[in-house]
Amino acid sequence: MPQHVRGVVARVKGEPVRVETIVVPDPGPDEAVVRVQACGVCHTDLHYREGGINDDFPFLLGHEAAGIVEAVGTGVTDVAPGDFVVLNWRAVCGRCRACRRGRPQYCFDTHNARQRMTLSDGTELSPALGIGAFAEKTLVAAGQCTKVDPAVSPAAAGLLGCGVMAGIGAAINTGGVGRGDTVAVIGCGGVGNAAVVGARLAGAAKIIAVDIDERKLETARTMGATDTVNARDTDPVEAIRRLTNGFGADIVIEAVGRPETYRQAFYARDLAGTVVLVGVPTPDMQLDLPLLDVFGRGGALKSSWYGDCLPSRDFPMLTDLYLQGRLDLDSFVTETITLDEVEDAFARMHKGDVLRSVVIF
């Protein structure tokens, strides 16, 4: 029988979100209903509210979540009621050309639940990133549920569902950071600081954090940055070169998603170095680079989508590191809030006052 729960809905572009009644259907084939325990307030949710992703309003926001599987539909074998899971937004198909070549992290046919959750009047909702977890319960494709050790705090585990995974994966999976490398991270919000953590886990010798907010730079130091650059006062390209003996960094991770910071990343890397774009741009943004410079500097220009992660592989690995005391996910949680406080959390996030607000159910 369909269930009625509370959820955070963005009805109109740019307007404050509201907590409304959501109708969650029983799971169909290959679907699961998850009782959400915690969900992080990610900048992507604000992008949805502002119409920066698409205009399929109304949106059921929230996607960085962990919870307990409550029910599954027919054909589901990988998870069962009672399992503690982190929700992911890339349920791989197992059939496309990437999956058949053994590269499921690049799956070209990821999917979500077939059924739609609705408002009480029957209006269909668009769940953020196919999840919609600012709700007491949500309907997802079963492949979006990744089992992890239930000893992990839900507030910490949920962050692996998006921001932390995106940043760590940008460093380790996409950037290929290795022992002794020099790494620069431009933009030290949640994703950027996760990239700092990823570079540290991979054994980077020097990690340079760049931002215009001294509070974020201080956080980056606690996360493992060896050097910081305040780009409000200093040319970051010159500073990164100065800190790398004039060469530039081996890997530069751009975690802002703006043309001007991407240019900084491009020119702050060493010859044959790598630029990784993990910051999310808006549809109107354009990049202008001299093609001769692209050719002449060599190396690689990469985009990191979800940290090029494979949830079934990476989420359990990272939760194990957390339980071993080697990955401090708790340090990303600035505050815990209720469902009714999401709009206020957006404002604090926009001002840079928090690394992550986490809704606790």
Rank of each mutant, 00 (worst) to 15 (best):
V152Y: 02
L125F: 03
A80S: 13
A135Q: 01
Q115D: 10
R103V: 02
G102K: 13
R90T: 12
T123P: 03
G130C: 09
F84K: 10
A142T: 06
L129S: 09
P104K: 07
L125C: 10
L129K: 00
K147N: 02
R116Q: 12
G102V: 12
S153M: 05
S126W: 06
A155G: 02
C145F: 13
Q105R: 14
G94V: 07
T123L: 04
T110W: 11
M117C: 11
G82S: 06
V152D: 07
V140Y: 03
H111I: 08
D83T: 07
A91M: 12
L129C: 09
R103A: 13
R97K: 14
T110V: 14
E136V: 03
A91D: 09
P104L: 04
L129G: 02
D109N: 15
A133N: 04
N112A: 12
G143D: 07
A128Q: 10
C93H: 04
C145D: 04
P81G: 07
G132W: 10
G94A: 07
Q115K: 15
A156I: 03
D121C: 05
D149N: 15
S120F: 01
G122A: 08
A128D: 11
T146S: 07
W89L: 01
G102W: 06
Q115W: 11
V140P: 04
Q115A: 14
K137W: 05
A156C: 15
R100E: 14
A151N: 09
T123Y: 07
V152L: 14
R90W: 09
F134W: 09
V148R: 08
V86A: 06
V152G: 03
A128R: 08
L119Y: 00
C96E: 11
H111E: 04
G132C: 08
P104M: 05
T123K: 07
R114W: 08
A135E: 00
A156K: 01
R103K: 15
T118V: 06
T118E: 14
R101W: 11
C99D: 02
A155Q: 12
V140K: 03
S153P: 03
E136S: 04
T118Q: 14
Q115T: 04
V152A: 15
V92W: 06
